[in-house]
């Protein structure tokens, strides 16, 4: 009986073991972005803007030209890249603390200006790298190391639904929320990532995709439990869907 190759590494994913915890879905998100760019032969014209958080070493795992932005500023840095290199494919990869807390101003304004960039936003409802503190997307009632009694909406606010917020801004051509917790959702995620780049390539505006992803370590769950947690607890707060997709022939000024 001969062996069948079930999985091949897409060329833009480096042959480097990641530092991510077991069950973390950053690796899945990385690979889906790389697979799209490789499939479309865009890797050689891609410039990636990395951020601060667990994915800070993204440039070690994806073999694109890269610039590391200070915490929260990736959409501004990507703006600088794209404005002087409009022929390049530019994307940011940001977590929830980076994008929705310290970087709220930058994402809002880059989206509102309609920067022709793609934003890959990984939402796992917690600060991962620093050890599980409350994030802007932490669920109401979710216990973290800085919300030990659970997030209290009346003093700490409700989680930011970024895909919906961003969809409401004029410069955004595509905004969607998908999840990485099961095969069906992965197929949706693949499609959303594609659209988030297509609108950039068409010069239509910003493409924004929010990926609901696991953090088993800080959620204190097994990987399987974490996948179930996305379905049972996170999706009810963060509904999946496409919140904006302008017609393919629509343009901006």
């Amino acid at each position: 009986m001969s062996e069948t190759l079930a999985f091949t590494r897409t060329p833009s994913v480096a042959e480097t073991p990641t530092h991510y915890c077991p069950g973390c879905q950053h690796g899945v998100a990385h690979r889906m972005v790389a697979e799209y760019l490789d499939a479309e032969n865009l890797a050689e014209k891609t410039i990636m803007v990395t951020s601060i958080g667990c994915s800070v070493f993204l440039y070690n795992y994806l073999r694109f030209d890269s610039v590391e932005a200070p915490h929260g500023r990736a959409p501004a840095t990507a703006t600088g890249v794209k404005r002087v290199s409009p022929d390049k494919v530019v994307f940011t990869y940001q977590g929830d603390g980076d994008l929705a807390s310290i970087g709220m101003a930058e994402i809002m304004h880059a989206a509102n200006r309609g920067e022709r960039i793609t934003v890959v936003f990984v939402n796992n409802t917690v600060y991962g790298m620093t050890g599980g503190q409350m994030a802007p997307t932490t669920l109401v009632g979710q216990k973290t190391t800085t919300s030990p009694a659970g997030r209290c909406a009346s003093t700490e606010g409700a989680p930011f639904r970024m895909a919906e917020i961003v969809a409401g801004l004029g410069g955004v051509a595509f905004s969607a929320r998908v999840a990485l917790n099961n095969v069906k959702h992965l197929a949706q995620a693949r499609k959303a990532i594609r659209r988030a780049f297509e609108v950039q390539l068409a010069g239509q505006g910003m493409g924004f995709v929010e990926l609901l992803a696991t953090c088993p370590t800080n959620w204190k769950m097994t990987p399987v439990q974490a996948n179930e947690h996305i379905e049972a607890a996170i999706i009810p707060t963060f509904p999946l869907g496409v919140f904006k997709d302008i017609a393919k022939n629509a343009g901006a000024c």
Binding site: R73, A76, T79, V81, K82, V84, A105
Partner: peptide
């Protein structure tokens, strides 16, 4: 060249970072 009025000084200098990383004079 490209002109952008940034949303803050932090955004402005980080736009410079992005542009300059491509080798452009920024």
């Amino acid at each position: 060249g490209a002109f952008v009025q940034a949303e803050s000084e932090m955004a402005a200098i980080n736009m410079v970072l992005g542009a300059a990383a491509t080798g452009a004079r920024a």
